[in-house]
Design a protein around this nucleic acid. Structure first.
Lengths: 109, 109
DNA sequence: GAGTTGGTTATCCATGTGGCTAACTATCTG
DNA sequence: CAGATAGTTAGCCACATGGATAACCAACTC
């Protein structure tokens, strides 16, 4: 029951974490690179990074003492799909309702 | 700082609430309609519905004693956009990196 | 008007989440 | 080796979240 989408959406529901994703979308970066602009204490920030990683949204590779983070695009695409599917379903319904309304209108005139 | 996306993603990070959205994408329904298949107590379920509404994901209209729920598509589209933007950014980077790698490869040969 | 149905409100409780500080390890750099 | 740098771990705290019951209100239905 604990869908992939669960952890994905939960991961994205925080501005700090979304900022990390936004930054990583433009290319890899280290933990401190990402942390620098933030007012938050490093350990708190690290927890966000770890959550992103355990949600499968980023990967990381440690070389020496620095840890380089990379975004993982697949989950984004997956969530995008789900949202699009729901939205299109609903918009399709709307279209059909509107068509029906118009048909009835024509018939009445 | 409390972005629209905050409340949106938080709202979607729960399977019960996503199930409501999935169902409403196929057309309007009443609270009990939606609750019926669920094992959860009604008041708990109601809290989910209310959260969806205050996140702007659904609208509701009460006629008599029943409350009819409607999905609101705009926020879905907005989140979809954000995700798509990040993903395309990243994929664009990948493409350019790959092109670069290929160019270097050609030059070496 | 008595009973039923559809929602709603009020508490309560356990757990999760997001922030902090302090203290530590591990890797450079001079 | 001594110090600085980059992460990490541990522990603490306030508050939000997701679930439950109990009791209630408001509208149908007979």
């Amino acid at each position: 029951m604990d869908n992939q989408l669960d952890t994905f959406f939960a991961a994205m529901a925080d501005p700090t974490r979304r900022a990390v994703i936004e930054r990583l979308a433009q290319g890899p970066a280290s933990v401190t690179d990402l942390h620098d602009p933030s007012a938050m204490a490093l350990p708190s920030f690290l927890k966000h990074v770890n959550r992103l990683e355990s949600a499968g949204l980023i990967r990381s590779e440690k070389t020496g003492r620095t840890r380089i983070l990379n975004i993982e695009a697949a989950p984004l695409a997956q969530a995008e799909d789900w949202l699009g599917r729901q939205r299109r379903l609903w918009e399709g319904k709307l279209d059909r309702l509107q068509a029906l309304a118009e048909a009835m209108e024509r018939r009445k005139l």
